[in-house]
Write a protein that binds this DNA or RNA. Structure first.
Lengths: 197, 197
DNA sequence: ACCTGAACACCGTTCAAGT
DNA sequence: ACCTGAACACCGTTCAAGT
């Protein structure tokens, strides 16, 4: 279930069979544990459920963030694919908001994802994590909406994802988390002011 | 420095002198430690710095949340006073946004506050915590802005504070946290769409 | 090359024993 | 009434010893 689509390697070579088996087991256990108790799930408990020593977990994933990135990589990849599909839509403003809402729903319903995205490097999330993937994918959607004059030119994708992420984080535990996230993101996108006229 | 304005009591009676001294020391140590390492600061370390046993900390503050509420009570009270002052302003829309920005600045610059507010009871923050205080204080500002037809009728103070809190949380660690928080809150208030015409 | 088990320095919570 | 110190069941990280 939780085998990563991108096969893990060490210096370009695929892992030895037993190492690969452990890698997958750890990821599967992490999926269950993080869903149960969030991004701060006990690494010890994950190793236990995977049937490996804690040291093995630490070799495969040198930091909690590395484990979370591997865990969410595929789900985030799906969002990136969706963004590229929406980039050719007729209405760039609608395309952007559709995507932002989708990101919010993912974040609000996938325990630990929002916290994991926020834990990445501070202001401009750089590097190879899930945050960068989303940022790159969304950039083009925003560019088009701004080129069409639909979205304010001051808004950046870093801002928009920060807002969406923030909303995901606050709604994460709620009943109807997805609905609440969409509602709050929509509020932030449209603003609080009543229609003029 | 960190003595609470609202004197702690046990069943209506003020604390014995030594107990009161410990209470204040714990709060002062907590202020320093939470500023240093956030809402998840080590309680053990706080007790150590206060010069009391860890059991003493737990008696005075049965939960981490209780400690954080006591710690932030006075700062939050200031925001509530400000809200009551703004309730008689000429422009209710401007009054509301002024206050929301102030809340965001507090949250973004006071390590641990946003996380503490979010940890309160889920959907409708009830009870006696800082979240309820802010909610009650803001309610009147929103009511007036909506009565004037300035703010959408669907927006609730729970929504607005969730947004502001979410923004405080994401910006908490950043350089220029206050500026960033104001910028993001302003974006959410005004929405992302470019001005028509 | 990869794994395991143990060791280390921490946690938060609780409780018996003190004054 | 209030405090202390110790005990308990946990953490995450690292490292020597194994195969």
């Amino acid at each position: 279930m939780a085998e990563s689509a991108t096969a893990p390697t060490v210096r370009g070579r695929p892992l030895r069979a037993d190492a690969r088996r452990n890698y997958d087991r750890i990821l599967a256990a992490a999926e269950a544990e993080v869903a149960r108790s969030g991004a701060g799930a006990s690494l010890e408990e994950i190793a236990r459920q995977a049937g490996v020593g804690s040291a093995t977990l630490h070799r495969h994933f040198p930091s909690r963030q590395a484990l979370l990135d591997a865990l969410f990589h595929d789900r985030v990849e799906v969002l990136c694919v969706q963004a590229r599909g929406l980039a050719s839509a007729d209405d760039p403003g609608a395309a952007l908001t559709t995507w932002l809402r989708a990101v919010a729903v993912y974040g609000a319903t996938t325990r630990g994802l929002a916290a994991s995205l926020m834990a990445g490097p501070p202001d401009p999330p750089s590097g190879e994590g899930c945050g960068t993937m989303l940022l790159d994918a969304g950039q083009e959607l925003l560019r088009r909406a701004q080129a069409a004059g639909t979205v304010r030119s001051e808004a950046t994708m870093v801002d928009l994802l920060a807002l969406v992420n923030a909303v995901s984080l606050v709604t994460e535990g709620r009943t109807d988390a997805a609905d609440e996230a969409v509602r709050l993101v929509s509020l932030a996108i449209d603003g609080v002011w009543a229609q003029a006229g």
